[in-house]
Design a protein around this nucleic acid. Sequence first.
DNA 1: TCCGTCGTTGGAAGCGCTTACATTTCTGTT
DNA 2: AACAGAAATGTAAGCGCTTCCAACGACGGA
Lengths: 340, 340
Amino acid sequence: MSGRERRPVTIYEVADRAGVSIATVSRALRDSGLVAPATRRRVQQVAEELRFRPSRAGRALAEGQHAANGIVFPDLSGPYYAEVVLGYEEVVAELGRSVLILATNGRAKAEDAVHELAGRVDGMVIMGRTVGDHVVVRIADTGLPLVLLARPPVGLVDTVTADNESSARDLTAHLLGHGHRRIAFLGDPDESPDVAGRYTGFREAMTGGGYPVPVATPCAFDVRSGYAAAKDLLRTRPDAVVCANDEVALGALRAAEDLGLSVPGDLALTGWDDIMAAGYARLTTVHQSMRELGATAARWLDERIGGAKTVTQTLARREVLPTRLVIRASCGSHTDGGTT
Amino acid sequence: MSGRERRPVTIYEVADRAGVSIATVSRALRDSGLVAPATRRRVQQVAEELRFRPSRAGRALAEGQHAANGIVFPDLSGPYYAEVVLGYEEVVAELGRSVLILATNGRAKAEDAVHELAGRVDGMVIMGRTVGDHVVVRIADTGLPLVLLARPPVGLVDTVTADNESSARDLTAHLLGHGHRRIAFLGDPDESPDVAGRYTGFREAMTGGGYPVPVATPCAFDVRSGYAAAKDLLRTRPDAVVCANDEVALGALRAAEDLGLSVPGDLALTGWDDIMAAGYARLTTVHQSMRELGATAARWLDERIGGAKTVTQTLARREVLPTRLVIRASCGSHTDGGTT
DNA sequence: TCCGTCGTTGGAAGCGCTTACATTTCTGTT
DNA sequence: AACAGAAATGTAAGCGCTTCCAACGACGGA
C-alpha cells in the first residue's frame, strides 16, 4: 500500500532488464512489425513485471503531440453543457485520446486559461459565451485545430450549431396559432449566440405575422434570474412569454404562480433545451440533441487533427443540427406531450 | 487567419531575439528575483511580441509535473456527476491547474484508460462505480496522490463520501412514521457503494422498527430502468418504495401512473439526490451538495500533491459530508416542500 | 591596487521518449 | 562458399524546458 515516494520506472530500466536498447523497447511496445517476435515477447513481459508506463510528457515532447483534446464551455450547472461534454468525451475517448475541460464560468482569467489549455492539446472545441473572437482568431492562427460550438463562425474555423432560428419561428408561430398576440421574449440576445438566434427567429415570426416585435427582456440563464425577471415582466401582462431556455421558463413559471396567474390559462410559457425538469413541469420547449452536438464537434476535430487521415479540408465546415418542437401543456395546447 | 502550418515559437527564438541565453529567458519569465530588471523587461517584451507560450510538454518533462488533475466518474448523464465535476473543476482551476476527465461509462477498457490518465496528471479523484479496488491500489502504489469519492475507502487513500446511511435511516423512519409498513427498496446495492450505504441504512431502520427487511430489487440508474423495474415490483403491492436515486423514482412514478396507482395515495415514493426534476415531480428525496463533494476532493488532492505546502498527512483522511432530507408530497406527507 | 563577494548570466546536463540512420546478423542465391 | 539484401537491433540526435554550476563583471573594503 505504498507510502514511500517512488520514481516511476523508465524505458531504460526495461531495456536493461530485457537486455536490449531503449529503441527496441520503444518499438516492441508500440510498432507492429520491425521487432523479432521473441524479443517483443521478452520486452513485453519485462515491461509488465516492472509495471512500466511510458511517460506521457516524454512521448508528448518526442512526438510533438499530446493525444488530448480540449473543450471550453461556460459552465456545467445546467444539463445542457453536461450533455454536450458527455457526447464529446465519449467520442474523444473512443479515439484513444484524453479530454481536458475548462469552464470559463465568470472567471476573470478565462482568456489565459484558454491559451494555457491550447498548449496542452492537439485541438479543441470552444463553445459560445466563453471567450471573444479575438481569442479564437489568435489560437486558430497558431495552427491549432479548432471547432466552434454554438457560436457564430469566425474566420475559417469549423462551426457546429443547433438550429435556433427556424425552431424559434416554429415555436412563435405555434403560439400565434393559439391566439396569443402580446408575446414577450425573456433572455439576453447579447449574452449568448444561441439566444441571439432564438430572438431572431422570434422576431421574424412576429414580423411575418404582422405583429409588433417587443424588445427582449435580458435575463441570465438560471431559474432564480428567470424568476426575478419574470416578476417584473409579467406586470406588463403579456399573453405569452418565450424564454431563452428551460431554466428561465421554470423560473417564470414560479413567478406566475406567485402572481396568481395560471399557466397556460392566463399565460403561455415556453422554454428551450428540453431538460428533464421541463417534462415534469409540462413545459413546451425545443429539443436538441446536445450529445450529438458534442459528438459531431469531436469527430470534426479529429478529422482536422488528422486522426482519420482523411483528405484535409481547406474550407471551413458549417453544420446546423436540427431541433424539434416539444409541445406540452404550458403553451396552451390541448395535446399534452407528457414527460417524454 | 492562418492556414499554413506553423511551428510554435520556442524559448530559443526568444533568447535569440532578446540577445540572452535560454536560461535567462526561462528565469525572466517565471522567477521573481535572479534577473536584472532591465533584462527581464526586454525578455518579457520579446516574448510578448513573438507570442511565446512555453511548451507544456517541455515543462512537464523538465519539472516532472503536469500541473493537471484528473477525475474519473461513471458518466455525466444525470445532474449528479455533472455537479461534482463542476465543483471539482472550479477549485482545481483556481489552483492554476488543468482538469482531465474520464467517463468510464460502460467502457470495456476503463482500466487502461484510468492508468493512462494516471500518467498525465499529478493526482486524481476516482469515484465509485468506475473501476475496481485493485486499480486504485495499483495506482496508489505508484505514489500518485489519490482521493476517492463516493466509494468505500481503500488502503491509505483519502476518501470523501456523502452520508448515505443515516439519511437512509431518517428517510425510512419518516416513511414508517406515515404508517407505511410494506416498504420496498429499488436499486442495486452491489452496483454502487452509494446504493449499498442507502440500503444498509434502510435495513437498519426497518430492523430497528421490528419490521422484516425486503431484499433489494436491482435496477440501473436511469428513468427507463426505474420504470421497467417498478412495473414488476409494484405488482407486489408495496405501501412505499425507496428508490436508489431520483431518476429511478421518477421512472417508478410513471409506472405507478400507468398502473393507475395514485402517489402518494396508494403508494409512497422517495428518491435521492434532489435533482431539479425531483422538485417539479414533488418527489421526497435526499439532498446532498454535489459541488461540495467535488470541491472537497479537489482541495484534499491539492494538499496531497503538495500545492498547499501543508504538513504532509501520513494517515488517510475520511470525511462524510452531511445530507438533508427533503420532504415533498410523494411520501404522503402533508407538508409540501415545493420545488426548492 | 588587489581580492573577496555578490548579483547576473551562460553553459550544459538532463527529463523520458521517438526515430532517422548506422550497424550487425541472418537469409537465400548463385 | 561468398555475397547481396532483408531483418533486427543499436546509436544517438533531438523534442523544449528547468536548473545546477561555473564564469564573469562590478563593486567595496582593506
